[in-house]
Design a protein around this nucleic acid. Structure first.
Length: 462
RNA sequence: GGCCCCUUCGUCUAGCGGUUAGGAUCCAUGGUUUUCAUCCAUGUUACAGGAGUUCGAGUCUCCUAGGGGUCACCA
């Protein structure tokens, strides 16, 4: 059975890049009817927080991804890790290193000065003498000293790293707590993971983890290292480039299905297909189709996808979602009419809410320029006729409002724009927006009369 | 700096030795629409550069350049 995982360290919100690798892992597990597991990497007691764990869970919940079984917290497994540290010590595969931090940094500086890669020199690897006093030792693992560490990456192919690039790294700190690369390897193995899909910033951790796997006799999983997401200029994605927190997208009015669709196509593709429902993603996703190269983050497509999903969302759900954006039309008797009139005009829920508010609420003020442009010398007369006809008209459906406008156009022998423009400004305060017939049908006769009258009063007041 | 990875339209990508290098988005234009949006149509734009291998290279090899990653008692 395929088992994948997402293993965030709880130091902040869920990052957009993290969500993508989580999505890939989740899809691959689902595709194979396998398990998608969650592990919280909180070995650094000082840096992680419960809020961060909650934030990650909240984001998962928002996009509709769920993990199998219980989440595993590494901070609760120190006893387990200790067992393996003792084992390696006993087997002579790890050793105590009494080098002080000062000595270490001194070593690094001299290596740097010579233009070398900084690495531990193995001075306590075969140490048998009397340990220096006053130094709490760290535990280092014995990494191979010659040859190459080779592994097959499911995305990048065969990766070869010289053993000289991997030093005897620390697996337990002076205070006894285990370090990242050590516990990751143990947990990945113990959790029975078959496929590890992660960002390629972990590529260099892989040989280190392989050292642990081999020392402990664990079976290697398949590794997939997904290239990073950069900003639109190809540089590292940072907060300055816009939203990096997944939950920010909710606030900005994006639908989770749009975000997921956007992210799944960043680095992965299936022929020419652009739109993927969750079901299709699960059916079609395969890490072998993931791109080797990094991709640049650009909002254009997300916006387009979001518009697409808004247009196709059931009204009942849209109405529910809009509540968070200050528009509650859940029980409005013209809900469908409102949404039909507006949903093709809003690329985000924020914009959709604006469109709806524009119709539901009478304009507070008119744009002076627009007003002047729309209200010509004969406008007052035209609108007055419109008011007269509207008062007497039988209004049952959208088309009936259209008939009133048509009558005005016919009687006065004018173009639609002659009445359309000023009417629009009267109703919305704006020159653009939904169809007039629909707007009027939504607000109803009395409100239309009110708004037109108000505009006419305003006109006289100028 | 050492090591590793990457490089097709502005952006996301298809391509897996023989294609007029395809799709999507963006942008522009036209159509539909009383307006805007939607929708439809059309158009502009790409194989980083240079050497090889081959009858033939975006596809294979090497070099150069550019970009990214990584070098902790962080994860």
């Amino acid at each position: 059975m395929i088992k994948t995982r997402f293993a965030p360290s709880p130091t902040g919100y869920l990052h957009i890049g993290g969500l993508r690798t989580a999505l890939f892992s989740w899809l691959w597990a689902k595709r194979n009817s396998g398990n998608f597991l969650l592990r919280i990497e909180d070995t650094d007691l000082a840096r992680n927080s419960q809020e961060a764990v909650d934030a990650i869970l909240k984001a998962f919940n928002w996009v509709g991804m769920s993990y199998d079984g219980e989440a595993i917290f590494q901070s609760k497994r120190f006893d387990l890790y200790q067992k393996y540290i003792d084992q390696l010590l006993k087997e002579g595969k790890a050793y105590k290193c009494y080098m002080s931090k000062d000595e270490l940094s001194e070593l690094r500086e001299s290596q740097m000065a010579r233009g070398e890669r900084t690495r531990y020199d193995g001075r306590y690897r075969d140490f048998t003498g009397t340990p220096p006093e006053g130094v709490e030792p760290v535990i280092r693992i014995k990494a191979p000293q010659e040859g190459d560490i080779v592994f097959n990456d499911g995305i990048k192919g065969e990766i070869t790293i010289a053993s000289t690039e991997v030093d005897d790294f620390v697996i337990a700190r002076a205070d006894g707590t285990p370090t990242y690369n050590f516990v990751v390897a143990i947990d990945d193995a113990l959790m029975g993971l078959t496929d590890v899909i992660r960002g390629d910033d972990h590529l260099y951790n892989t040989p280190k983890q392989i050292v642990v796997y081999e020392a402990l006799g664990f079976k290697l999983p398949n590794f997939y290292h997904v290239a990073m997401i950069n900003n639109e200029h190809g540089k590292k994605l940072s907060k300055r480039d816009g939203a990096t927190d997944v939950m920010e997208y909710k606030t900005l009015g994006y639908l989770p299905e749009a975000l997921l669709n956007f992210l799944v196509r960043l680095g992965w593709s299936h022929g020419d297909q652009e739109i993927f429902s969750i079901e299709e993603m699960i059916e079609l996703f395969d890490p072998k189709d993931i791109n080797k190269s990094s991709s640049n983050y650009n909002l254009d497509k997300l916006l387009w996808l979001n518009a697409h999903y808004i247009k196709n969302k059931p009204h009942i759900e849209l109405a529910e979602l809009l509540v968070d954006f200050g528009v509650d039309i859940r029980t409005h008797d013209k809900k469908d009419l409102i949404l039909n009139a507006t949903k093709e005009r809003g690329k985000t829920l924020v914009e959709l809410a604006e469109q709806i508010n524009m119709i539901l609420n009478a304009p507070v003020e008119y744009n002076a320029k627009n007003f002047k442009k729309a209200f010509k010398a004969d406008t007052e007369e035209i609108l007055s006729l419109f008011v007269e006809l509207l008062k007497r008209a039988e209004l049952n459906e959208v088309a009936d409002y259209h008939k009133v406008i048509e009558s005005v156009v016919e009687q006065r022998e004018i173009g639609f724009g002659k009445i359309g423009q000023p009417l629009r400004v009267s109703l919305l305060g704006s020159m653009t927006g939904s169809g007039l017939d629909e707007i009027m049908a939504i607000v109803g006769r009395d409100e239309v009369l009110l708004r037109v009258q108000r505009a006419l009063d305003y006109k006289r007041g100028i």
